[in-house]
Nucleic acid binder design. Structure first.
Length: 502
DNA sequence: AGTGCAGTTGACTTT
DNA sequence: TAAAGTCAACTGCAC
């Protein structure tokens, strides 16, 4: 039987270390490389023009790489099922090969529809994992071993002599023709593999040295962090390639700081798959609280003015506004600031986690559904298994931006505010005239949120659902915190004896 | 060189 | 990846 293999690219836009490509080559049939611009994807509430621009750039890069090997990427626009139907009509016998996607709910449903269609048409669809996340994971107990097994396998070399075939391609639509969300400020985007590799080099030789010290400082984090997340999100770079490079790289000056940076970074790579696995195990993670007790706690649509102020960085809380404006303008901010922003939205502003989560998703150029919704739920305290962490934006500002340079840069209204009151200008003897008063009382709102959240936590303690969530999703690495041994007290020296310690 | 005391530090617990 | 509270040990200082 003479058929073709369709290599369906999704969020795996590369040829290096590409398990699905390897699989397609092994089938021995001509390979049609395909990417589908799916309208459903781009009318998602989480989607934004900056993701689209990045995807477009990555597609261009992939098309160039395929062209360099004598092939041509076929780009089609439309629903995946429709596009695949037409290709089936055109080519007759097809085999579908792709990576196992862990994405938003619409993509889960689309994959189920495609799978059903394949079954009905007797088409074989081979899905291969491209990271350590596993479909139908039975237990979290084996997670660590499974992660190591995958990551310790050497990256797959790009196959030689790929038997490409091609068919006519469609132009990629403009964002205005396909997107729903309002256009955001333009951010500089370079989605090429070349840029990804140059950032990796920079991290290996420079960033790693100050990674741990600077990653939470908004002013220094952009240089100290790897800045590879957006490439991971679209699969321009694989985690395994990066992990391999880390392991073989010799620091320029072997110093403990580099070793610490590498170790810490590697741990974060592992956390990535750990969080994506949660979405794999719970495909509606973006819509439903992991623990049902927290559903309906903060009704959506309750505070449209607060949501708007949050989105624009106009809350009157300096470090929140500085972080939000910076994120909105650049598409990236360090992890700690992300956590703080979500905490502020969920606790101080008491916004529904989905509403705030959508705003952040659209801003993050590196939006990755599995990490994002796991993190949003965790920071909003609705998983039923993580502790409640309420950030104090005044304290965070003082700790993370001690000189106030970052805050003043993004909130120029406070240019002349003395450092002492920069993070809490409402307490200054001379109130700012340009800058708005805070839209909520930070201390009062945090206290109210804390009381409600801990009350809920007490209510659900030990319930079957609570146990189930922990069994299904909790990390097994650390056993439940045990009381540490107290330092043995020295025997109380009975007054004057034995005290001749000259 | 000890005693009493206020203030600080750090480890640990609670929310 | 939090912040606030508790408690005991420690520090500096006056006497």
């Amino acid at each position: 039987m003479s058929g073709i293999s369709i290599l369906w690219f999704k969020r795996d836009l590369r040829l290096e270390d590409h398990p699905a490509l390897r699989q397609a080559v092994q089938l021995g049939q001509p390979i049609l490389p395909l990417f589908i611009v799916e309208p459903e994807s781009w009318c998602s509430t989480s989607a934004s023009s900056r993701h689209y621009d990045f995807m477009t750039g990555a597609i261009d890069g992939l098309a160039d790489d395929i062209a360099a090997l004598g092939g041509a990427l076929c780009v089609r626009h439309g629903s995946a099922l429709e596009v695949l139907r037409r290709l089936k009509d055109q080519f007759g016998h097809i085999t579908l090969v792709s990576h196992e996607e862990t994405g938003e709910l619409w993509s889960y449903r689309r994959d189920r529809a495609v799978a059903a269609w394949c079954k009905e048409q007797s088409i074989s669809w081979i899905e291969v994992p491209q990271c350590a996340v596993r479909r139908r994971l039975r237990t979290r107990d084996i997670w660590q071993r499974q992660y190591d097994d995958f990551m310790n396998h050497p990256p797959l070399a790009r196959p030689r002599d790929i038997p490409w075939i091609s068919c006519d391609s469609q132009p990629i639509p403009k964002w205005s023709e396909i997107g729903h969300a309002a256009e955001l400020p333009q951010v500089p985007i370079c989605a090429t593999r070349k840029m990804a590799l140059s950032r990796l080099d920079h991290f290996l030789n420079q960033g790693a040295q100050t990674y741990q010290a600077d990653m939470s400082t908004p002013l220094k984090a952009p240089q100290a962090c790897s800045r590879l997340s957006e490439y991971f999100a679209w699969g321009v770079l694989s985690l395994r390639e990066v992990r391999a490079r880390l392991d073989e790289h010799v620091p320029p000056e072997p110093r403990p700081a580099f070793a610490r940076g590498y170790r810490s970074f590697k741990a974060r790579l592992a956390w990535r798959d750990h969080f994506i696995q949660k979405l794999e195990d719970q495909p509606d993670l973006e819509q439903r609280s992991l623990h049902s007790a927290f559903e309906g706690l903060r009704p959506a649509g309750q505070y449209p003015d607060r949501l708007e102020a949050f989105s624009l960085g106009m809350t009157g809380v300096p470090f929140i506004d500085a972080s939000m404006r910076s994120l909105r303008q650049t598409g990236w901010i360090n992890f700690r600031a992300r956590a703080m922003l979500m905490s502020f939205a969920a606790y101080n502003l008491w916004l529904d986690w989905r509403e705030a989560g959508h705003v952040l998703a659209r801003y993050f150029i590196d939006y990755e559904p599995g990490i994002h919704w796991s993190q949003v739920q965790m920071q909003a305290g609705v998983t039923g298994m993580n502790t409640i962490r309420i950030y104090n934006p005044v304290k965070q500002g003082q700790d993370q931006d001690p000189d106030g340079i970052f805050t003043r840069h993004w909130v120029p209204e406070l240019r002349d505010m003395p450092l002492e009151f920069l993070q809490n200008p409402w307490e200054a003897p001379l109130l700012p005239t340009q800058y708005m008063p805070p839209i909520v009382d930070i201390a009062a709102s945090a206290r109210a949120a804390r009381d409600i959240m801990w009350q809920k936590k007490r209510e659900i303690k030990g319930l079957p659902e609570t146990r189930n969530v922990i069994a299904k999703h909790a990390s097994r690495k650390r056993p439940p915190s045990r009381r540490k041994n107290k330092v043995a007290k020295p025997a109380p020296s009975s007054s004057n004896q034995l005290s001749f310690d000259f």
